[in-house]
Amino acid sequence: SLEEAIRRAEEALRKGQTFEYAGIRVTTQEALEKFRKWAEKQK
């Protein structure tokens, strides 16, 4: 689910890792916010 993907992205960010979902790379807090906004639109 998208909620699960967001949780995994947050977890990866805390560990300093890269999270990738549907071709979207989350490597920074800013990218995480963009990913969250994108995920909201997918619902």
Rank of each mutant, 00 (worst) to 15 (best):
I24V: 06
T18L: 11
L13Q: 02
A31L: 09
Q42G: 06
F35H: 01
Q29F: 12
E11M: 04
T27V: 08
K41S: 15
K37L: 11
A22V: 06
Q17L: 14
Q29K: 12
E4N: 11
E4V: 10
Q42E: 09
A9F: 05
W38F: 05
I6K: 01
K43H: 12
R36I: 15
L2S: 02
R8E: 11
K34T: 10
L32Y: 05
I6C: 09
R14I: 09
R36Y: 08
E33W: 03
R14G: 10
G16I: 02
T18S: 13
W38G: 01
F35Y: 02
A39V: 15
L2W: 15
Q42K: 10
L13D: 00
A39C: 14
A5Y: 09
Y21G: 03
V26E: 01
E3W: 08
V26Q: 00
Q17F: 12
G16W: 03
A22G: 11
E33R: 06
I24R: 03
Q42A: 10
K15R: 13
F19G: 01
R36V: 13
E10P: 01
K15S: 12
E40F: 05
Q29E: 11
Q42H: 13
R7H: 11
L32W: 04
K15D: 10
R25N: 11
K41V: 11
G23L: 01
S1D: 14
R8C: 15
A12W: 04
F35I: 04
E30R: 07
E3V: 10
E11N: 07
T18G: 10
E11W: 01
A9W: 04
T28D: 14
K43V: 14
K43S: 12
R8F: 09
K34L: 14
E30P: 04
E33D: 13
A12Q: 06
F19V: 02
E20F: 05
S1N: 13
L2M: 08
E40S: 07
K37V: 10
Q29H: 12
Q17M: 13
K41R: 11
E10Y: 06
T18W: 14
A39Y: 08
K37Q: 14
F19K: 01
A9G: 05
E33G: 04
Y21S: 03
T27W: 05
R7I: 11
Q17Y: 10
K37W: 09
K43D: 09
K34Q: 14
E40H: 06
E10G: 06
T18A: 14
R25L: 15
R8V: 07
I24L: 08
E20R: 02
T27Q: 10
F35S: 00
A5F: 11
K34M: 14
A12Y: 08
S1Y: 14
S1L: 12
E4D: 14
E3F: 06
K37Y: 11
E30A: 12
T18R: 06
S1G: 13
V26M: 08
A22M: 15
E4S: 11
G23H: 05
A39S: 04
E40I: 06
R25Y: 12
G16V: 01
F35T: 00
R25V: 15
G23Q: 04
A39E: 02
A31Y: 04
L13H: 02
T27K: 08
L32E: 00
A22S: 08
K41Y: 11
E40N: 08
A5L: 15
R14D: 08
R7L: 12
T18E: 15
E3A: 11
G23A: 03
Q29L: 14
L13I: 15
L32T: 00
I6Q: 02
L13P: 00
T18C: 14
R8Y: 09
K15V: 10
I24D: 01
L32P: 00
E20T: 06
I6M: 08
Q42L: 13
T27E: 15
I24P: 00
A31K: 05
E3H: 10
A12V: 04
E40D: 10
A22T: 03
F19Y: 08
K41H: 12
A22E: 13
E33Y: 04
T27C: 11
F19M: 01
T18N: 13
E11T: 06
G23D: 08
T28K: 02
E10N: 05
K37F: 07
E33K: 07
W38I: 04
E40Y: 06
T27Y: 06
A22K: 11
A22W: 07
F19A: 01
L2F: 10
E20S: 04
R36T: 07
Q17W: 07
T28L: 05
A5P: 03
I24Q: 07
Q17E: 15
